[in-house]
Design a protein around this nucleic acid. Structure first.
Lengths: 129, 129
DNA sequence: GCATCATATGAACACCTGTTCATGTGAGCC
DNA sequence: GGCTCACATGAACAGGTGTTCATATGATGC
């Protein structure tokens, strides 16, 4: 899950590809305002990581309460191994951070943005349920 | 079999999976506060849908400007077919909505939450670049 | 009617993902 | 030391995913 792997590496900024364009002015303006690729790729990976129900439950639980690994497993109903694998992915994207206390490791959200992201997201989906 | 099989009742609502729990009080509280499954699943699918770089670029472009399909393709550098497939996924999750004008179909974000979600997300990732 | 344009969709393929199982690691305690 | 606990990690498999190619749809204009 290396985010620094520029896999589809092409996309020349001035090559509009061979598609017929309806409003070239709009297209040019949008292309000028788009965030740079690294930000887009990192955000996509962040969303994709939150896009797994198990990892989302973990993040959601940690938004409510700092927890150790085995308590996360109990709270969301997963095996310890699966939780640990998920936590690594979340850590690598700086969505959660860990703190050691003796033998046990406690996890919590990395910063306040994550909580807001979750809140916005739930607000959105709860309108269509 | 008559009556008294002295077995503790299995499937206590607080006993999910056989993991050893460190702080049962915390676990119980978190489980009580977790959003219901349908909301979690729908939000996960929403995040997953935004978690593809191509779809994220499309949503990002539409956050800047209403666009028709071919202009989206030109703006983000994808084929018309790929854009159309992506738009269907985005439509089904109510992330974008369409409007017809003659032969062309214009797309824009479905509501303001999506824009906020994007803004929060970019704010988060731009701190670690 | 027919041709064309803008978009949508189906099938198929290579690629990626999350879980389980087994095992490794490293701290605390006797 | 040796043991256990809490967690991390590697391998491997089933299932899912996004793209391309070819084709379909539906609206416009002749």
């Amino acid at each position: 899950m290396a985010l620094s792997a520029p896999r589809p590496a092409r996309r020349d900024p001035d090559d509009l590809c061979e598609v017929k364009v309806t409003d070239l002015g709009r297209v040019r303006r949008v292309r000028r305002l788009l965030k740079p690729e690294p930000a887009v790729l990192l955000l996509a990976e962040t969303f994709r990581t939150l896009g797994d129900p198990s990892r989302l439950r973990i993040v959601h639980a940690l938004a409510l309460q700092e927890l150790c690994v085995c308590d996360i497993a109990a709270a969301v109903g997963m095996s310890q191994s699966a939780v640990s694998h998920s936590l690594r992915a979340l850590r690598q994207l700086r969505l959660v951070r860990s703190r050691r206390d003796g033998k046990t490791t406690y996890y919590r959200l990395d910063d306040a943005h994550i909580g807001r992201l979750l809140a916005d997201g739930f607000e959105h989906v709860e309108e269509q349920l």
